[in-house]
Each structure stands twice: as C-alpha cells, then as structure tokens.
Design a protein around this nucleic acid. Sequence first.
DNA 1: TATCAACACGAAACCGTTTTCGAAGGGTAA
DNA 2: TTACCCTTCGAAAACGGTTTCGTGTTGATA
Lengths: 339, 339
Amino acid sequence: MKQKITLKHIARELSVSISTVSKALKNSEEISKDTKDKIQAFAKLYNYKPNNIAISLKNRRTKNIGVIIPDIVHHFFTTVFRGIENYANAKGYNVIVCMSDESFDKEVINMELLANGSIDGFIMALSAETQIKNDYNHLKEVTEQGIPLVLFDRITDEIECDKVVINDMEGAYKAVTKFIEDGRKQIALITTEDYYSVSRERAKGYKQALLDHNLPYRENLVLKLPFMDVDELAINEFLDREKIDAVLCVNEMYAIHSMRHVQSKGLSIPKDISFIGFTDGILSKYSTPGLTAVSQHGERMGEIAAEMLIEKIESEKEEESYKTTVLDTTIVARGSTNN
Amino acid sequence: MKQKITLKHIARELSVSISTVSKALKNSEEISKDTKDKIQAFAKLYNYKPNNIAISLKNRRTKNIGVIIPDIVHHFFTTVFRGIENYANAKGYNVIVCMSDESFDKEVINMELLANGSIDGFIMALSAETQIKNDYNHLKEVTEQGIPLVLFDRITDEIECDKVVINDMEGAYKAVTKFIEDGRKQIALITTEDYYSVSRERAKGYKQALLDHNLPYRENLVLKLPFMDVDELAINEFLDREKIDAVLCVNEMYAIHSMRHVQSKGLSIPKDISFIGFTDGILSKYSTPGLTAVSQHGERMGEIAAEMLIEKIESEKEEESYKTTVLDTTIVARGSTNN
DNA sequence: TATCAACACGAAACCGTTTTCGAAGGGTAA
DNA sequence: TTACCCTTCGAAAACGGTTTCGTGTTGATA
C-alpha cells in the first residue's frame, strides 16, 4: 500500500520548503521556472493530489452539498436527485444524501450532523412528520448559522429561504379541465390529508377547475387518505360507492390501484371511467393502459434547486433575498384518457 | 448570522487554554469537576459542536463512504442504496453518491475526486462502459492506496476486493424450473449482451435448468438485446416469430413490455404464456397481472456491502483477505405464472 | 523539613494545505 | 562603494481540532 504523498514529502525530497512546493504546483510567478519544472515533474511522477480535507479546512468550503429527502426509493425524488447531482457535479460539488424516512427525528439528526462543517448548503424536501408537527426549528438554526438552504416540493412558508416547487394547483386544474373537456361530469379526487403542502394545492386546483366550469364541488367525491401508502380497501370502497366517470389521483400508486380495481369490475378505461395521476413516473408509462400523467419535471426541479443553492454558496455578499421558483406542469397523455 | 463557535472562542471567553476546553468537553479525568462543569455549561449554552472537517483532518478518517452507481433512477440500485444508507448511518457514516451514467470516464473522474481524502471507502457497481472496456485501472489505483472497496451486483474478477452479488445463476435456474414444473415446454429468455456479469450468469442458469430437466437448449429461443433500454420492435418480432409458452426476462421492463405485447395479441396470461422477470421492483407489483419476479433483495445487499466496507475501514490490521458474499434469490409469485 | 505523588492545567506538535510577509542574494545605477 | 530593487525562496500563521508531555501547586509522608 502506497502512502498518499503530501507537500511535506515532496519538500523534503527536493530539499525545498513546503511553501515553495505549494506555490510551484499552483504555477506561481514567485517561483523560478527551474524549480517549478522540477517540482511539477516530481509531483506528476508520484501522482500527487492535494488532500481535499485539508483544503476544506483551510477554505472553510467543502464543495459538498447535503440533500435530505424522505426516501430514495421513490421515483420522483430520484429524478430530482439526478438533476441535483448532475448540476452539482458539473460545478465541482459532491452530494451527500440522507434519508429522513419521513421521520422528524431523523431529519433533525441528519441536519445537525451535516451542519457541522460537512457541507456548504442543504437541499431538502420536508418529511411527512415534520409537516405534521409543523416544527421547523432545525431549519431555522441552520439558516441562522448562515448555511444556505433550498427547499423543494415539500416546502413550508414558515422558513425564509429559496424554494422550488411545481405549480401543483395548476397541474390539478389542467387535469380536471381535460376531464371536463372530454365530457366527464363525475370527477373524483383521491388524495392525502392536507398536511402535505402539495396535496393542499392540488385539492385547490381540483376545486377551482370544477367551479370555473360550473360543475359542483362535492365532498363525497373526494377521498382523503391519511398516508402515502395505499389503503386498498378504502379506495375500492370509495370507487364502488360513488358514481364516478373520472378520477384524479395525487400519486401513481393510487391511480394504478384504482385502475386495476375498476378493470376487475369489468369497466373499460377510458370509455367508462378515465384516470389521470400525478407524477409521470415509471408506473404510468408501463401500466395497461398507460396512465395519463401530470409531469412534475423532477430532473429540472433538481437542477434549479442545485443552481439556486450553489449561487447562494458562492455569492460573497450576504443578501437576504429569497426567491421561489414555480415550475409549470405538463400533461402527458396516455391511454387512460380519451385523446 | 451567528458565527460557528470554536474551542478557541470558548477558551478565550473562560480564560483557559484550548487543550483544557477540548479535554473538558470529552469529560477527561484530567480536568477538575469545577472547570469541566463550567466549560460544558458554556458549550451547551452556545451550542458548541466540533467541526467535522477539523476532526477528519486530524484523524485521517472522514466517516464518509462513497457510493458510485450507474444511475440512481433505477429501482434496484435505489433499494441497494437504501440498505447502504441505513447501515452506514447507524454506524455514524455519511454517504456521498455519484452517478457514473454508465460512462467509464465519469466513473474514473468521480473516483479520483473522492479518493483524495473525501471518503474512507468505496461501494460501487460497475458502469456498462467499464465492463465493456474491461479496464479497471482506476479501481486498482484506489485499492493500492489502501482505500477499501466493495463491489456489488456488477462486479469483475479482475479486482481483488470484497464483493456481494446475488446468485444470478440460481435465480434463473429457479425460475426456469418453476416454468417446467408448471408444464411449460417452450421457454424463452430475453436478456442483454454478455458483457454484463449478471446477464452471463442468468443465461447460464437458464441453460442449465433446461438441460437438467431434459429439455433442449435452443439458441433461437434466446433474445439478446444490446442495451438496457427496451428495443420494443425486436421484442415484438421475437415474440411473434417463436412459439413460446413461457418467458424469463432479465429485467422488469422487458417483461412488462412483453406482457403488454402478447396481451394486445389476445393471448391470456398465464394460461397461454407465462412470465417471470428479474428484479422484484415496483413494476412487477403493479402490473396487470402482477409479474412473478426473482427478488434480488437489494436492500439486504446494500446492508451487507456497507457492513463489509465499514469492517474493513475500521479494522486496524491490514489483512489481505477478501470475501464474496452470494445472496440467494427468492421467487415472488404473482399472476403472471400459474400458482 | 525535604521528598514525592497526585492533581490540574497549559504549551506545543500535528493533521495537510494556503498565504502573507520577510529576507537573502545578485544585479544595476549613482 | 553604496544604495536600492528584483528575484526567489522560506518561516510562520492560520483553518479547528486532538494529544503528548511538561510544569506548577498542593498535600501527605518519611
């Protein structure tokens, strides 16, 4: 095992000082050409690479960014993550990921761990528990320390920082409008409880689209499930009970399960009932029929988040101006709606 | 913005030396109770947290592990990653992820970047290009520097290091055996070219199972596609051409696409033709019918990889012994086969 | 009273860099 | 010869910790 070579080794070997080596390797004007040549040749020969940790300590910059997401096994988050990683890498940053597992405590612990010098800034989507608790002190502490923070998708108004979200309301509005244009009258919404910021917005868009097109908003056509996991029985019972000819679902799983259920009852999609789901993920693409989806442009979202963060990190001046970028959704039409 | 507080600040404020503060905060026996109490109280009050970077520099240990995978938007890799992250976090390690995008160059660059002190060890799955090029010098360099490395799933015999794979051959063998027990005779395999170590193994298992059950191995029942992306036309043409009553696919996408195709031709699954796909991912669960799958236990794989790596990192003695852990597959039966 | 151990703390080296500032040495101009 | 400047390099501080070793003070013991 070869030990990593340091400036000190080179200096000793060539009988010069450490500072000279450092400067020579940076091609400083201060050092004579002869000495620089000698040192650079030696460094190349022994494959010298400066130690990142030492540089980080010196610069108080790690070139790492911390990403905290509820779960990595989730198509939308992974696409966002890919956007982050791509942009960050191109800018010379590495990405440390932590999963909060939708747990408040894990979110807090991970943030505290990373905030002690390991990263230059955070990009995160809030955990479910955090949103329910409505406790954002850990975010406040971080921002007060001057660590830049960008929130995406699952955000909160309680914290002042850069944010990037999709226009959830508009996405739902578009979807419902499409249903209406297709002649649907009994349009249902399957969603989660209101503590998810995104669910609230989507519910708003759903309602608004109905009202704007002179259709009644009826509570009984809205199914609110307590958690993200699929409560199959509740969905089945809902679909069986209500007279419905179109369903908007806030995630793919709800939609896919619903489609299977109505298919098993002999209904035809999209003739008898049609579906649109949020998140243009892998399930939408491969289901039978394909699920028309509201695309959230996750990768773009990640890029924007990373761009915002890195700009804050690298801007010298300490401006207290924060912006929220809102991405428009697009509807990806597939077999679950008439096109 | 509050500046981060350091030992030096505390020392100055309390008129003691830095070393005293350091020791007091570690509850050293050397320091009197009075002084310790005073210092600890002060530290708590100002929320002192030691700087990770400084500690890393001192200890030559970062408590970071680097994970390099071809793509994060890939269900199997994300499950492995979750396993890694969970185990690593529990052991106090953070995880830095890089994506190679199946590119040799990106893999090399990312490794070199991280190898300069940012991480204590690597966990990785080889990129497609790397496997095709068969060039592993970047891995050799890393191991020669004494940086521990664990390879998973996409591995190579060229490098001596810890490895963890699933028993791909046995998985395919089990699947084909199930087909045969179900009375299938014309069993096809849809796979990728042989440079993926996993595809090779699976093809072996497929062949062996046929031979062991006195069925002929016929080249024309094996479709080899050049890349991981789904060449729909080639698959359709293959399915239409050959007389087939069962199909083993090396990934979910091939299987789902195949199922859709035969369904669109009016065939019934599993009566006329049945399917098994590798990777028990999200598509298998939500397809119609559900796809019987060979589970690769990704999360467990990740845990094991992380465990192996951390053990190597933390073991003082420099043993040159490497092991390969082989995980058994299990078949998750769903509607695409008769059960 | 001299000796010595125990106690409590500080000085300094170290991890691997970067960077400021000072200085030696040679050359040029007065 | 003296004064001064330029080139080229090194010493040292700094980033924020840990750790070894030394030292001054106290109290007990011979």
